[in-house]
Write a protein that binds this DNA or RNA. Structure first.
Lengths: 347, 347
DNA sequence: TCTGAATGTGAGACCGTTCCCACATTCCAA
DNA sequence: TTGGAATGTGGGAACGGTCTCACATTCAGA
């Protein structure tokens, strides 16, 4: 019972070193190194002998030692700042992380994922001390954190962040275009009385989405009235629900036939309230969101939305970061991804 | 335009070494090391002088070099095997990852997160070569992968995996108890005609949940009829929907008043179908799921469920792994977490 | 037969830390 | 006064690889 705790040590344990391999194969460690790296001349027989020992001892090169001399860890870090949700399970950012994970693995990078609610410099410090080859910063980090990382002189890419930092690669969604697409679609269906729930305007995405939407309405001569606009304090389900609840009297009185929310969570929250009021969606009110998170597709009714290409976001960020790490020139600093209208049951 | 790609190199760059600090402070590197580690005697004035240089140069100790000599990387790896979803955005496993991330950060570990769909040995190899201090294996990994890791002699903890591996720490949910809780609750509401959608019985969780449920019904003299049971091929929303659709005629004919699914996704899928058939939930049919994923709480109607304590899972796994790494004895090999009944609109 | 290139191998410095050991100085109690 | 502990500092050997250089051997062409 007591000893059980030690059982894990029973494994063959002890990872071998290149020196041991050399000794057993009767060659120098330089030769073993050559066999492993595949560069330099080496006699086929010697290679086989070495390979055999490696196989027998299940030798795994020590990436730490390797990093020490090569000054490359082949590790990258992902830093996310989120208050509402922890990172991984975040319906939107989680997707980006997944894409990064998949792409990084293909490029032989390991990925440190870091979550930081206080957004102290601590998590950045962590990554920096670990000497990651590069960093992917997701969402809107505080300026001092960005400066801190920038000063350290490590390559980094920003995903879905605000663009007020210069000379840095940004991967973003064409949010303004997305807003216009939503407006074009709704008006195309004949809707003119549209209510809008716009998330925090300090967030680049929400700001641009609203403006794209508004600009389009304006351009077709049917401008958005300020009274048709409400601002949830946070881009959450609860806030969407709450805002819809608060504006319900005006909503009914206003004769609105459609609702646009600057993200899916808000849209879903609002939709839940509408359903509870026995509003028939989309017959009485059509609803469209933005983001294209998984939940939107399984909700009842499933939510029409402007889907952001999170897979491309993660993948692109990775690819570019790899280039930066390799000191290759990147010809574009602002990568803008094109969103897609996904029509579902709610419209 | 062209040079912009090089701008990132403009940072102060160049991380300094302990030797540089020593030189500038006019002391030996041993002394600097002492200042940083805080052990050994050191004159206050010397300390201040060194600290000043460190501050000025923004020196950050190189964790790679440190790991090299201390044989401890202070990195841990998280390995997940999932076919259906990528890991991070997985509604259930993502939560566990989040808890691990938070706990690990508190314990000064950095976390490598790895996703592997083919579940080759490759991702395990990756972690092993990086010399992580320990590994957390989530979900049911293939035996050869576990053996591989076990043989390497590195500490590891299994979360939500099958228990057929001996002498290894397992963190699991009391799934059987959860199944009983669901049955007790539904029957307590007066339901007797209950339909069950049980996910793949090769999965420990789904198997145990079904058995707990069935056992309870049996114990109160109202055993589950085999015709009241359907097995979705996968524990997904789509499969839940599809299975419900297929069994709809029987369902109507059987006079069922309640539905139990062995996870939330299946329950939600089934619920969507029911709603589309204008079935009133919970009036005509009560629905209960299992897992306690976020979506369940925001769905309309929100889903009653047996919530697994994913936070505790991740936290416990981390805490125990830390002990194993530290060679501390752990007195329990099987950590079983108690699930909780969350009552919502669907029942 | 000679010569220079091609092939094959090993010695040893180095990457940036930690830590043990040696040594110097101060201090206090006998 | 003196010796041993306490305090303070530096030298240098690891850690496990990579990579440059030197050197040995083989081989082909003149």
């Amino acid at each position: 019972m007591w000893e059980r705790s030690h059982i894990q040590k029973a494994g063959l344990d002890m990872s071998h070193t290149i020196r041991e391999i050399a000794q057993l194969a009767g060659v120098s460690k330089s030769t073993v190194s050559r066999v492993i790296s595949g560069k330099g001349y080496i006699h086929p027989e010697t290679r086989d002998a070495v390979l055999k020992v490696i196989e027998e001892l299940q030798y795994k090169p020590n990436a730490v030692a390797r990093a020490m001399v090569s000054q490359r860890t082949h590790n990258i870090g992902v830093l996310i700042y989120r208050k509402e949700y922890p990172i991984a399970s975040h319906p939107f950012y989680g997707k980006i992380v997944d894409a990064i994970l998949a792409t990084a693995a293909r490029m032989n990078y390991s990925v440190f994922v870091t979550t930081d609610h206080e957004m102290s410099l601590r998590s950045a410090d962590f990554m920096l001390e670990k000497r990651v080859d590069g960093l992917i910063l997701i969402s809107r980090l505080q300026q001092n954190v960005i400066d801190y990382i920038h000063n350290f002189g490590i390559p980094y890419v920003m995903v879905n962040g605000s663009t007020d930092v210069d000379n840095v690669v940004h991967v973003v969604n064409r949010d303004q275009d997305g807003g216009m697409m939503a407006a074009e679609y709704l008006t195309g269906l004949g809707h003119r009385q549209i209510f809008v729930l716009a998330g925090p305007q300090t967030h680049r995405s929400h700001y641009l989405r609203l403006h794209g939407f508004r600009d389009y309405l304006h351009s077709i001569g049917s401008p958005l009235d300020p009274s048709s606009l409400a601002y949830p304090q946070a881009s959450t389900f609860d806030q969407g629900y709450e805002m819809m609840r608060q504006h319900w009297p005006d909503f009914k009185a206003g004769g609105y036939t459609a609702l646009f929310a600057t993200n899916d969570m808000i849209a879903l929250g609002a939709m839940k309230f509408l359903i509870e009021q026995s509003v028939r969606i989309p017959d009485q009110v059509a609803v469209i969101g933005f983001d294209g998170i998984d939940v939107a597709s399984i909700y009842t009714p499933s939510l029409t939305t402007i889907r952001v290409d999170t897979e491309a976001m993660g993948r692109t960020a990775c690819t570019i970061l790899d280039k930066l790490i390799d000191q290759q020139p990147v010809n574009e600093l602002d990568i803008e991804l094109v969103p897609e209208l996904i029509i579902r049951q709610s419209t």
